[in-house]
Simulated assay, not measured.
Amino acid sequence: MREISLVDVAGLVGQELGISEWITVDQSMINLFADATLDHQFIHVDPERAAAESPFGGTIAHGFLTLSLLSAMNFESIPKIREQTMGINYGFDRVRFMSPVKPGSRVRGRFTLADSRFRGAGMLMTTYDVTVEIENEKKPALTANWITIVQFDPKDRPEDA
């Protein structure tokens, strides 16, 4: 895994920092997500009914399933900050579900660092422009601005920050 230092982060704003490996979203994953979230809408879990009654020609993954995969995609593809003691999700802005993810599709995340700023003595807030691509599709599954907080020991804060 690549590593960077806190002092490097500001210089990376505007740059693509990582692209994850492909993740296969199969019907089993969709069904497990439906069980975990209690969202058993037929367009997700009933292939026959979804083929007959939905505009998608079959089942599709929950948008929130695709969104939730960002954690794994991020962990695998974004450089680790050496001084980081913990990472925290702060939230999302402008989440858009652009195209449905059908069972058997492969998706991957693309992360561009859009902003970073220090908050308090031991926190760095980062914003990523995120796109989840569907293999062999022109439109992405989703786009979002993902805001995270990197916690670190205040003694490690760069002097000029």
Rank of each mutant, 00 (worst) to 15 (best):
Q41S: 14
F42C: 09
P47L: 04
P47N: 05
N31Y: 04
I23D: 08
L17I: 02
E21W: 09
W22H: 09
A50H: 00
T37C: 08
H44S: 02
W22T: 11
D39Y: 06
D46T: 10
V25H: 09
H44K: 06
Q27T: 03
F33C: 00
E16K: 13
H40M: 01
E16T: 13
I23K: 13
R49W: 10
Q41H: 15
H40R: 07
I43V: 15
E21P: 00
Q41L: 13
L17V: 08
W22L: 12
L38E: 15
H40V: 01
Q41W: 08
P47M: 09
D35S: 06
D39A: 04
G18W: 00
T37G: 02
S20D: 03
A36L: 10
W22V: 08
P47I: 06
H40P: 02
T24R: 15
V13A: 02
P47V: 05
V45F: 06
D39I: 02
D39F: 03
P47K: 08
P47R: 05
D46R: 12
G18K: 02
T37W: 04
Q41A: 14
D26H: 07
S20P: 04
G14L: 07
S28K: 08
H44Y: 02
E48V: 12
T37R: 12
A34K: 02
L38T: 15
P47Q: 06
V13Q: 05
I30E: 01
Q27K: 08
I43Y: 04
D39L: 07
M29Y: 09
A50Y: 03
I43H: 08
S28D: 11
G18T: 00
F33L: 03
D46G: 08
T24S: 14
G18L: 00
I23V: 15
V13E: 10
T37Y: 09
R49H: 13
L32G: 00
I19L: 02
G14Y: 08
L32Q: 14
I43E: 03
I30V: 10
L12E: 04
I43S: 05
G14A: 07
F42D: 12
T24Y: 11
F33N: 00
Q15F: 07
L32F: 07
G14T: 11
R49A: 09
V25Q: 08
I23G: 02
Q27R: 11
E48F: 05
R49N: 10
A36G: 06
Q15P: 06
W22S: 05
L32D: 11
W22Q: 10
E48G: 00
V13F: 00
Q41P: 12
S28Q: 09
D35N: 04
L12T: 08
D39K: 08
L38A: 12
F42E: 10
D39P: 02
